[in-house]
Design a binder for these strands. Sequence first.
RNA 1: GGCCCGUUGGUGAAGCGGUUAACACACCAGCCUUUCACGCUGGCAUGCAGGGGUUCGAAUCCCCUACGGGUCACCA
Length: 495
Amino acid sequence: MAKVRTRYAPSPTGHLHIGGARTALFSYLWARKNGGSFVVRIEDTDVERNVADAEKKQMEALKWLGIDWDESVDVGGPHAPYRSMERLDLYQTHLDKLLEGGQAYPCYCTQEELDREREKQLAEGVAPKYSGRCRHLSEEEREAFEKEGRVPSIRFRVPEGRTITVRDEVRGEVRFDSDGVGDFIIQRPDGRPTYNFAVVVDDALMEITHVVRAEEHLSNTPRQILLYEALGFEPPVFAHASLILNPDGKKMSKRDESVIQFIDQYRELGYLPESIINFLVLLGWAPEGEKAEEEIFSKEELIDLFSLKRVSKAPAVFDTGKLKWMNNHYIKESSTERITDLAIPHLARAGRISENPTGEELEWVSRLVGLYKEQLDYVAQIVELTEMFFREEARYSGEAKEVLSGEQVPEVVEGFIKQLETFEGALTPGEVKALLKTVQKETGHKGKKLFMPIRAAVTGEVHGPDLRETICLLGKEKVLARLKGFLERRDQILA
RNA sequence: GGCCCGUUGGUGAAGCGGUUAACACACCAGCCUUUCACGCUGGCAUGCAGGGGUUCGAAUCCCCUACGGGUCACCA
């Protein structure tokens, strides 16, 4: 069997979408698993929709995910160029062959005429399909149209009565009747190819062996197979993965608010690339055998385990809760340094730390991150989670007020203030523990009666991470200020 | 409307003719902990969209129905 070559061929019309990322991932894994090549090709023939930065952005997003390629616009390769609009002469050459063989013909219909035809068919409940009115134009008729100034598009002449079999790795053999497909346009009047033509020429010339893409392309595949045949190329093996649905079970639309849709956004929020990869691969794919009981996989494991045969035919629902869990899992596995580095820009942007933090600040942030790492679903969450640290005064929750209304509270708080004030030197969790122990001895209050009032008075909350470390990070001055502030304004706070 | 594809718990899913229908997320209960989170333990589909077959035996094979989806563009 020939060397495996797969490709991801996005159009540069927007950001990398989760669906696209999953398609790219499947293609990538398959190539890597087989020691083959992975190509990223840009299908930019729809020039009106092209967005300036999109190509660059999408490739950056892929790279960030850890999906690297062997051939593309940036690194070149044996089949360059890798942008459709730079391959126009190639399409023309192949188109000419079709024209010469009579397998394609010029169509002079205007958009308006076609629209009208289509609407009429729809209204009659007939399958909308090109009527073929330009199929058998005589030389004279053509000339007449040309004289009118009409510039033709080129249509492919779909053979009649053919059964077209799509060989699909995930769905088996899918058969289509050629009579169901009308002659379709392969070249626009201005010479640009349409998608169905460009992909075929590109995939064939680039010797792509496996075309992995989403289900929405399945119905297009018979057209492409016909083109492969007409051009004398061997069709590749196809693999159509099912669609990804939003949590409501609906097809994900770009404007869907229930799910964050673009890889860039996940990156900005502080999702880790390995968790995105891990999550995405499980949308419509599952490992075989014993491995099916596991769900955490590194990219290397996936390369080893991946198989197109195991790609699911049924649509997958994008479960945001699972993604959070998975990201949290990877964050917990990551070093505090790594998460700290990711957290710094968020904290800086929120004005919590300076733009160019000093070594001291960095050390502090690192401890802060260490304290909250376990509960981060995504790194940007650090900002809201640690808000309490950056406020001048504590803001008391209802539960906190309840705790603080206990009769032993003033005594405990005063006792702790006394201990803190007399304490000299650097505050460490161990020291705080010792101070609290002393308060316990002096007041006779222990356990929740001791710890909760202090937590509540200092943080304004009854929940939170380790109290001792929290106190250390807040610093002696701030803690004292809050404790005293509470005592001074106790009546109004509890009111 | 034609043609195609799909349907196992709230979710991702394993299952490939004989299983107590894995595993994970979520959820519930308990344990741990000064609290939360983490972690740990346990619970959670009497049924595999519905109905017919085939078979000693079906989530697994066949047919029909229902529902969901894709496509029928000078968009990819």
